[in-house]
Design a protein around this nucleic acid. Structure first.
Ligand SMILES: [Mn+2]
Ligand SMILES: [Mn+2]
Ligand SMILES: [Zn+2]
Ligand SMILES: [Zn+2]
Lengths: 154, 154
DNA sequence: TTGTATTTAAGAATTATTCTTATTTAATTG
DNA sequence: CAATTAAATAAGAATAATTCTTAAATACAA
C-alpha cells in the first residue's frame, strides 16, 4: 500500500467511527505503519516524540488501544513484558524467540486453512481468527547464555 | 496421574535440580496441579495462602518461575493482564476468549504434527514447540456488551 | 465563527513484577 | 542428634506497565 493510500484508509476508518483526525493520531498511525516488527506502545511513543515532543505515553497508548478497537491493528500474543501490537493484516503466523522475545512473521497457505475442531465449537460462540505459533531460539540468540521461558517439556 | 505419583515426580525433579523441598514449594506445586485452567501467580497465591497465611506473593511467583525453568510448567501466550501458567504437559492447543481472557485447552492430532516452513528455519536456530491458537468469544461472553481486544480484521 | 463533544497533557493511581536484605530452614555431615 | 552452611523465605522497597482523573485545548459540525 502506498503512503497516500494508507493515509486515506486511516481517514476513512476514523470517519466511519466518528473519531476526530488529530495530529497525534495521525502521527501514531504513521509510526505504526513504518514499524518493522511488533512494536510496544513505548516503541511508538519514542518515535512519535520526535515529531511531538509534548505528547504523553498515555495518549500514544490510548490511541493504539482505540486503533485496536476499530480494527486498524491487533494485539499480539506474547509470553512476557509489555503489550505489543501488530499492524500486519495479511494472513500470517508467528515465530517467538524465547530468549529475546522477538516475534517474526511468516506466511503459510496451509496454516491459514486450519479449522477449529467441532468439539471445541460447543464451548465457543464465535471464532474470529486463528494463528500458528512456533517457539524457539533465533540465530542472534543461539550463543547467548541467558535463560529462557520454557515452553515445552523438552 | 495419581496424587502420590505427582508428588514423587515433584520430589524427583527438585532433587535433579538441587532444589530444596520446602513446604512452600510443595504447596505451590499442589495448587498448580489442582488448578483448572491457566492460573496467574496471584491465583496460586490466593490458594496457597489458606495453608500458609504468611507466604508472600513474591515467594509464590518466584517458585512458579523456578518451576518454569526446570520444566514443571510453562508460561502461556496471552494478550493482556498478568502472566499465566500452564501445568498441562500433554500436547495441546488453545482457544482464547477475547472478552473474558479465558484460555481453553483442546487436543488435535492434526495440529500436533505441524512443521515449521523451511524458509523460517533460516532465521531460527532451534524450534522448541508449536501451538495453534484460536481467538473468539466464549458462550458465557456472547451476550456481554464488553468491548474486546480485536484480533483480526473481521 | 461559534458551540460543543472529543481529545489531549499532566500527574496521580493502580497493577504486575522484581529486587534487596536480614532471617530462617532444608539437608548434609560428623 | 547437633552443627554447619548454602539455599530459600518474608518483608518491604523499587521498578515497570498500564490506566484513571481532571482541566485545558481543539476538531469539526452547524
Ligand atoms: Mn505479526
Ligand atoms: Mn493449556
Ligand atoms: Zn532471540
Ligand atoms: Zn469469555
Amino acid at each position: 500500500m502506498q503512503e497516500a493510500e494508507q493515509l486515506d484508509r486511516f481517514f476513512e476508518i476514523c470517519r466511519q467511527h466518528n473519531l476526530k483526525i488529530t495530529p497525534q493520531r495521525t502521527s501514531v498511525y504513521h509510526a505504526l505503519m513504518s514499524a518493522e516488527n511488533h512494536p510496544s506502545a513505548d516503541d511508538i511513543f519514542q518515535i512519535v516524540k520526535h515529531q511531538y515532543p509534548n505528547i504523553t505515553f498515555d495518549t500514544v497508548n490510548r490511541t493504539l488501544m482505540t486503533f485496536t478497537q476499530i480494527g486498524l491493528l491487533t494485539i499480539v500474543e506474547s509470553y512476557r513484558g509489555s503489550r505489543r501490537f501488530d499492524p500486519n493484516f495479511e494472513d500470517h503466523h508467528h515465530m517467538h524467540c524465547l530468549k529475546c522475545g522477538r516475534i517474526v512473521d511468516f506466511t503459510s497457505d496451509e496454516f491459514d486453512q486450519l479449522k477449529a475442531p467441532k468439539k471445541l465449537m460447543q464451548k465457543f460462540a464465535t471464532v474470529l481468527s486463528s494463528r500458528v505459533i512456533f517457539n524457539g531460539i533465533c540465530l542472534e540468540c543461539q550463543n547467548k547464555t541467558d535463560k529462557f521461558y520454557r515452553n515445552n517439556k523438552s
